[in-house]
Structure formats: structure tokens, C-alpha cells
């Protein structure tokens, strides 16, 4: 940290990294054209992203010299990348499974309906006075306003 000489990257390193980047660009185009693309099938996307990530890593580590830099800069950048991953992953937890509440099998729904009806019937057989718990359930004894009607709410879905 305290040395006054910043690390000077040799020109050859820079050129070698550039060469690598060009080769990887060629590779990512190559895997996207027809014979290879259908060969890879569902792997096309992961492969393309992996190649892009490799290229980006090369740029960050050498061109941006993070390898030779103060570690706190690397930490900063890493945390930023982690946040992007969090953002994408957690959003896709939702969008990939969107509507999963509706994915219940019809049998299950029917069974739930049946159970609910049974419970309703049981409730109907009970005397409403047995269900009084809150002060509001005793409208005759105190003026608790409109809440007296809520005594039957326990069974509403």
C-alpha cells in the first residue's frame, strides 16, 4: 500500500490478455452458429454466459489490474457482483414459480372444499352463544359497535 511504485503491467501481458479476449469472442460466436448451437441445445445459454464471465474476469483482473491492486478494491467489486446475483436470483424465485398457488392438483382442491364444507356444517350445528370469546361478541352487555357480527367469522376462508 505504501510503496510509491504502482505496479506496471508489462506490455506483453496486456497483449496476451487481448489475444485471449479475441479468441474467446471468436469462440462465443462459434458456439452460437448453427451446427454447434443445436448440438449444445439447452447448454447454449450457460456456455455463452460462462465465456462472457471469463472474458469479464480477464478484463477485471489484468486490464483493471485488480490482481495487483489494494485488496479492498477487489472486495468492493466482488460485493457489487454478489448483489447483482442476489437481485437476479431472488427475483427469479418469483418469476420462475409465478402462479404456483394455482398449480395445486384438482383432487387437492376438491378435498379442501369438502373439508371446508364439513367444518361449515359443524359450525352451523353449534349454538352461536358457544362461540363468544371477545367482549365484542356480547353486544347486549356493552356497546361495542358493529363488531358483534364477527362472531361467525372464524370459519370464513
Amino acid at each position: 500500500m505504501s510503496d510509491d511504485d504502482h505496479h506496471v503491467l508489462p506490455k506483453n501481458t496486456l497483449l496476451a490478455v487481448f489475444g485471449g479476449l479475441i479468441v474467446l469472442t471468436g469462440l462465443t460466436v462459434a458456439v452460437a452458429v448453427e451446427p454447434v448451437a443445436s448440438l449444445l441445445g439447452p447448454l447454449t445459454v450457460p456456455v455463452a454466459i460462462a465465456i462472457a464471465a471469463t472474458k469479464a474476469t480477464l478484463v477485471v483482473v489484468f486490464f483493471m489490474a485488480l490482481k495487483y491492486d489494494n485488496p479492498v478494491n477487489a472486495l468492493t467489486f466482488t460485493i457489487g457482483i454478489i448483489m447483482v446475483v442476489v437481485f437476479i436470483t431472488f427475483t427469479m424465485f418469483d418469476t420462475v414459480y409465478r402462479g404456483d398457488l394455482g398449480n395445486v392438483a384438482p383432487q387437492t382442491v376438491q378435498e379442501m372444499d369438502r373439508q371446508q364444507k364439513e367444518a361449515q356444517q359443524e359450525m352451523d350445528q353449534l349454538d352461536s352463544e358457544d362461540l363468544r370469546v371477545a367482549p365484542a361478541d356480547y353486544p347486549d352487555q356493552q356497546g361495542a359497535g358493529g363488531e358483534s357480527t364477527e362472531s361467525g367469522n372464524a370459519d370464513s376462508p
Partner: peptide, 15 residues
Amino acid sequence: VWGHHMFVSGQSVVS
């Protein structure tokens, strides 16, 4: 934890 603002938004139950 941001999704806890969206429990009734229609997001997936998994999330």
C-alpha cells in the same frame, strides 16, 4: 428480504 413487502402482490409462494 425485499419480497416481504409483496406477500399479497401475486408473487410466487416459493419466494
